Computed example of a mutant assay.
Amino acid sequence: MNNYIKSFTKKMDKLLWREEFTNIIYLHDKEDKERLDQVIFLKKNNEDVVGFYIRGNNPLISVNKVYSLDDFNLYATYDELIEYEEKNFKLFKTECIRLYFNPDYNELLGIFLSDIDGFSSLIILFLQDEIRIVNDCKISDIDTVFEKFFLQVSVGNIIVYEKINPKNVWMLL
């Protein structure tokens, strides 16, 4: 595990591991009602958030709500933002995390989060200037999702690290 990957595993341990997520928050520009597809926030059961923003190869991560502290500098572009929450989000506690890295560059391609049984899950895909979410994806279908969105990377070559309860250690798959 190189230093880049270690850095992400530490962030994910601190921000996502064993957390209960209640919803996804999307931001929309109030003026034209368009959704900002480069940013999302995961809402925790205590109302805290973990935000992701992508412009380029790697996401920026924040624990601040956009109204509290604009870590992503969104108000430099937008005058007013509106929050919308996912309508059919199923509450789950993260007991399995997979991180997907580009084998040729220090680039995080995606994050898979699920409960221990895999009944509730979420894939966050980082696509250069867009974040895509896939809800309730089975582990067996993850390769198909990555093949659909990452044509430049062979799925068989993607570097995958997993942490699953009760092992509590990051393992290379």
Rank of each mutant, 00 (worst) to 15 (best):
F126S: 10
D48N: 15
L109N: 06
G110A: 07
F126M: 09
M171R: 09
L74P: 01
L122A: 08
K30M: 13
I133R: 02
D117W: 04
F119M: 13
Y78I: 02
I25R: 15
K11C: 09
M171L: 11
K87S: 13
N106C: 10
F21I: 10
D141F: 03
E130I: 05
D29S: 13
K148G: 05
I139Y: 05
T77V: 09
S140Q: 09
E162Y: 00
I158G: 01
F112E: 09
M12E: 11
V39R: 04
E85F: 08
V39H: 03
S154M: 11
T22V: 14
F150Y: 15
K11N: 12
E34W: 08
L60M: 14
K14C: 10
N64C: 12
Y161R: 05
D48P: 08
S154V: 10
K44C: 12
A76E: 13
G56L: 03
G118N: 02
V155L: 01
E162I: 05
E80V: 08
N3M: 10
P59A: 01
L113F: 00
N106D: 15
K93G: 06
V145C: 02
F41R: 04
K87D: 14
I40D: 01
I124R: 06
A76H: 09
V63H: 13
F21G: 06
T77L: 07
F72T: 00
F149R: 00
K43A: 14
K93W: 00
N46G: 03
S140F: 03
D141A: 09
D141Q: 11
L81E: 05
D129C: 09
L151E: 15
F112G: 06
N45R: 11
F8K: 13
V39N: 08
F101G: 07
V66D: 11
L91K: 14
V50A: 02
I116T: 07
Y78S: 04
V153P: 07
R18F: 10
F149H: 14
F101Q: 04
I124D: 04
N102A: 07
Y161Q: 05
L172W: 04
I131E: 03
T22M: 13
K10W: 06
A76F: 08
L109F: 01
G156E: 11
F8G: 04
L125Y: 01
D79F: 06
N106S: 12
Q128T: 12
I158T: 06
D129E: 14
F112R: 06
L113I: 02
N2K: 04
V39C: 13
E130F: 01
E86Y: 07
D71W: 03
K14L: 13
K44A: 12
L91C: 11
D29Q: 06
L127M: 11
E34A: 09
I5Y: 06
Y161M: 10
E107A: 09
G156I: 01
K14D: 14
N23C: 04
D136R: 08
I5V: 12
F52D: 03
E80H: 10
F126W: 05
I123H: 04
E20W: 01
V66A: 10
K90Q: 11
L99C: 02
D70Q: 04
D141S: 14
K167S: 14
K6I: 09
V63S: 15
F92H: 02
M171F: 05
D32G: 03
C137S: 08
D71N: 14
I82A: 13
L81W: 02
N3V: 06
M1W: 03
C96Q: 08
K138Y: 09
L99G: 02
W17F: 00
